[in-house]
Design a protein around this nucleic acid. Sequence first.
DNA 1: GTCCAGGCTCTTT
DNA 2: AAAGAGCATGGA
Length: 275
Amino acid sequence: MELIVNEFNIQQIAESGQSFRWYPVKKGYVVVAFHQVIYLEQEAKKLTLEIIKGDDQIWHSYFDLDQDYNSIMSLLKGQFPYLDQAMVFGSGIRILKQEAYEMMMTFIISANNNIKRITQSILLLSERYGSLLCEYEGVKYYDFPTPEQLRNVSIEDYRACGVGYRDQYLYELIKTINQGHDISSYVSLTDSELKSALLRHKGIGEKVAHCIMLFGYYRINQFPVDTWIKKVLVEKLHANPKALREFIEHHFHEYGGVAQQYLFYYGRFEPKNIS
DNA sequence: GTCCAGGCTCTTT
DNA sequence: AAAGAGCATGGA
């Protein structure tokens, strides 16, 4: 399947740190999401999707193709030279609409961790407890394990996947879900209700909750503040470090999550000799 | 060896 | 309310 896309760059999305299930293969990426697998390649505005497992129904939504990122950038433009540069540099970034439950597990693992090890842990969890989805170019791809598949996984088993001290948080979340706690009902909550519902789970604090809201529930007003972004806001946008939330609310309002992604990506990958 | 990674929980002021 | 210690683990 071929699509013509605007404000879309697979490398930028893959490196933006919102998904840990994009695997570099050949000249593109294998992407695993919603129990399905595709191989993606892009040449300028031409995006090629090769459906490996599943159908072509979910991907339009997954890639947020109904959202006009050009108009979002227009609204964010003109406030800070640094943000304007960030939007030029990362103009192909989009907010992926991912599965909420997977985002909860993923971002619990992400706390005080590095991207390489997060990716590795999620790969191990999937290979050991998820369903085999397909084989592509000699590599097998596994689904993210369901709560049911994790029912009998022990704290030690999680630890063996390299998640460190977050093992007990994963264990508690899975136990809660398998005891009947319905996290799918979270979708109908308001932002503040959703945030407090997420904060009730151990291992989910302010920053992780915002990531789950942004990537798992498509609350694109949510602006996760991590150590990187804090530095960018203070040093590049000259925000008052003691009033970051007010600063964010005032300048980015309903598109805070998108602005955050531009700033995060630029902060990490901008060419060294600029700024 | 020390420091850090898309922080959080628990304890102490 | 705010600040500090401790936390697994691999890589720089």
